[in-house]
Design a protein around this nucleic acid. Structure first.
Lengths: 114, 114
DNA sequence: TCCATGATTCGATAATCATCGAAATATGGA
DNA sequence: TCCATATTTCGATGATTATCGAATCATGGA
């Protein structure tokens, strides 16, 4: 993962509404949520929300698909995994830093960096 | 970790110079680096660097100590661990997301959130 | 005490970001 | 075709961020 990509992803998450939005999409899972539902959940005007959705999309953290009149947004787990991988490997001075919790993982395939 | 803290930490890292700076401090380890050395390494004017150091300090990601005329900066691993912990637990939809690498950890004590 | 060095703060400026109503675009149904 | 719904784009505005030279502050040594 290039550091410019990392900066963009971090920047996308470094905003109250967008962090909440991303968490919401993570909770929603693969089904995702329509823009309108998100706007209501977050209490943000549609045009403002659209701006934030664009930021996250641009950073590659979420994806968009259309379902009828609605645009459904979903979290991109792979992008998040890559981001976490970068942070762990480059910003943690080795293995010392990683929280111990999720070591019952079942995926070794998403890995990116060396 | 409160989400406001998370936003501030992410914002602090979401900048080219600051991300490079933080990585540099992580590499430097507990000895840290003097502001002047950092400025030279990054090729950034002293006053600009000072601004970025303040951002990272304010976000709690780095710490400062004085050694004679020099101010030595060090990465705060605990803060980074807490940040990663938050992201893993809130932005990853469970254990599915975590990269598999650092599971040979030796520390279970840094953990913060539940 | 005086000076040199290491670093921060101040101040001005340019750039980017966030907000949100109004207008425009896309889709589906009558 | 015409209308209603879902959402984005446009445009204007205020706020925050990044940059960097000059001035200031802190420390140590002569």
């Amino acid at each position: 993962m290039e550091s410019e990509t990392v900066v963009r992803a971090l920047g996308a998450l470094a905003q109250e509404h967008r962090l909440a939005l991303f968490r919401l999409l993570v909770q929603a899972g693969p089904d995702g949520l329509a823009a309108g539902a998100i706007a209501e959940a977050l209490g943000v005007p549609a045009s403002s929300l659209s701006f934030h959705l664009a930021q996250l999309t641009n950073a590659g953290l979420i994806a968009q698909r259309r379902d009828g009149r609605s645009l459904i947004y979903t979290a991109d787990y792979g992008a998040m995994t890559a981001l976490l991988g970068f942070l762990m490997e480059n910003c943690c001075g080795g293995a010392v830093c990683a929280p111990a919790a999720p070591c019952d993982t079942k995926d070794k395939n998403e890995r990116t960096a060396a």
